[in-house]
Design a protein around this nucleic acid. Structure first.
Ligand code: FES
Ligand code: FES
Lengths: 163, 163
DNA sequence: CAAATACAGGACTCAGCCGGTCCTGATTGA
DNA sequence: TCAATCAGGACCGGCTGAGTCCTGTATTTG
């Protein structure tokens, strides 16, 4: 039903938890806090590591920690880390060299791609730091977000300037 | 991958095809036109009928036709007809009396619900009549994103001017 | 060094559901 | 009445999502 997988949900939960501190925390620890079964927690974190969203530290005092500040990680990235490229429809996937089995090119395709891009950009604009706040006015997303968008835009520019 | 099911894709294709005329067309016919296997075509159309999106006419000259003008049918409705309620995450589903197995209420939930609502509204705003046009500037959807969006906007304007 | 703790990587299982088929009616036009 | 069409299920095979487990490697600490 236009679902993201449960594992991706876990990824977000784990990431928000990690966002609350800088010291690495172990799988055991995180599992206990979040209620996600330990082996699964491990699996998800490993994917996140491969995607470069978290850093792993081995050894006795090891564990996982975010690789970047929470406002530099988007929900879209988290989704992509677990599920691969975001594609609402099979023929909406622009990366993959997929050829639709139906009528060669049925116009619908281009429109799906646009919808897809819109959704993706929306998810891109929601950052982990937003998710961490229980009921933040984070997701205007649609229309009338002028001010929120502008604020974000300004922030982005600021960040760029600092880099 | 944040996918809608293939069947839903079929539903959209079939609906756009139906939008091109008012006389009922049979499953056999539609299957031939779209390239969707006949039994599957039938299945999808049956779901759409139950959802009230198309009318069915039995008998020798029967078939399916849209129950409303194409600009009165949204993509969201088509999705819902096939997949049920739109819910990005399990805990984003507001209808269902679902209780998250993780930490009772982890803040993330409210945010998912917002994202969910945003996506849903976006899909609601895209109508079948939009999908029927091969490359319509149909999907502003989320406005004023970044420069990419702006460029896109420019393209759209150009198209409008040409029309 | 050796033991204990943690992550890395991948094989494996199990269940659910998606895509697809088919069969048995009920309706209706010719 | 006959043929075409939809209605409503039952049914099935395969994929993949969720979860587990095992083996190996790195790091800390005594
Ligand atoms: S549905 Fe894939 S090109 Fe039309
Ligand atoms: S993930 Fe469901 S309430 Fe937090």
């Amino acid at each position: 039903m236009l679902r993201i997988s449960k594992l991706t949900d876990y990824a977000v939960v784990l990431a928000t938890e990690l966002a609350s501190g800088t010291a690495p925390r172990s799988v055991t620890r995180l599992s206990a806090i979040t209620g996600i079964p330990a082996p699964t927690t491990s699996k998800v974190l490993k994917s996140m590591t491969r995607a470069g969203l978290v850093d792993s530290v081995r050894g006795k005092t090891g564990g996982y920690r975010l690789s970047r500040p929470a406002d530099r990680i988007s929900v879209a990235e988290l989704i992509r880390a677990i599920e691969g490229s975001i594609a609402v429809t099979e023929c909406a996937d622009e990366n993959d060299g997929y050829v639709c089995s139906l009528q060669g090119d049925c116009g619908v395709r281009a429109n799906w791609q646009r919808i897809n891009r819109a959704v993706e950009e929306a998810l891109e604009s929601v950052r982990l730091s937003d998710m961490a706040v229980p009921n933040s006015p984070l997701v205007p997303l649609l229309r009338s977000q002028d001010e929120a968008e502008e604020k974000r835009h300004a922030e982005a520019l600021e960040v760029e300037n600092h880099g």
